[in-house]
């Protein structure tokens, strides 16, 4: 029984991850959930949206929500600057843009890398699916798909299909 049907069957283990940074936090997302990385753009804010919803962004006619990852991880907010990047990730209709300061690259986790006990960030609880070593430091892999499946619905409540042609 595997909870990762997408990746576990890939020939190389499919465990390539994209390492991102925001504030002091570095986490990894599975490459398979990352669609692409774009340069930051102006975000349309949404009134009365939950704190995790950073607003909406129009990607070629498709409106997708901004997942404010800083808020999820309890990192202080900051204004978006042109040097920032948006990671567009998710699957199918459930896509989000995640504002980050840096994409550190693609890495391959060592098999069986142990997840360190203790000092786990609050936003990660329940959504860690492994760890990867990058430049000698341990980076946890964040299960975005699972997060979206479990908690994500509010993100999409604000997306009105066909808002923009």
């Amino acid at each position: 029984m595997s909870l990762e049907p997408t990746t576990s069957m890939l020939p190389d283990g499919g465990r390539h991850v994209v390492v991102i940074r925001f504030g002091d936090i570095r986490i990894a997302l599975r490459l398979s959930v990352v669609e692409r990385v774009i340069r930051a753009v102006t975000v349309t804010t949404v009134a009365d949206a939950p704190a995790d919803v950073g607003g909406l962004v129009n990607v070629h006619g498709t409106v997708i929500p901004i997942l404010d990852i800083r808020c999820v991880f309890g990192v202080p907010r900051k204004a978006i600057v042109p040097a920032d990047l948006f990671v567009i990730a998710g699957a199918g209709q459930r896509r989000v843009a995640i504002p980050v300061e840096e994409v550190l690259g693609v890495a391959k986790p060592a098999p069986g890398a142990a997840v360190p006990a203790g000092d786990i960030l609050p936003g990660l609880v329940g959504f860690i699916e492994g760890a990867v070593t990058l430049e000698d430091s341990m980076i946890l892999i964040y299960d975005l798909e699972r997060f979206l499946r479990k908690n994500g619905s509010f993100l999409f409540d604000h997306v009105v299909p066909g808002v923009s042609p």
């Binding site: 804010t45 129009n58 070629h60 006619g61 042109p82």
Partner: peptide, 24 residues
Amino acid sequence: MNTASHTDQSILDARARELARPIS
């Protein structure tokens, strides 16, 4: 976002317009 400078904001706006344009 309110602290972004004027030029920064216009850069971001321009990018947003470009991004929003349907590919077709």
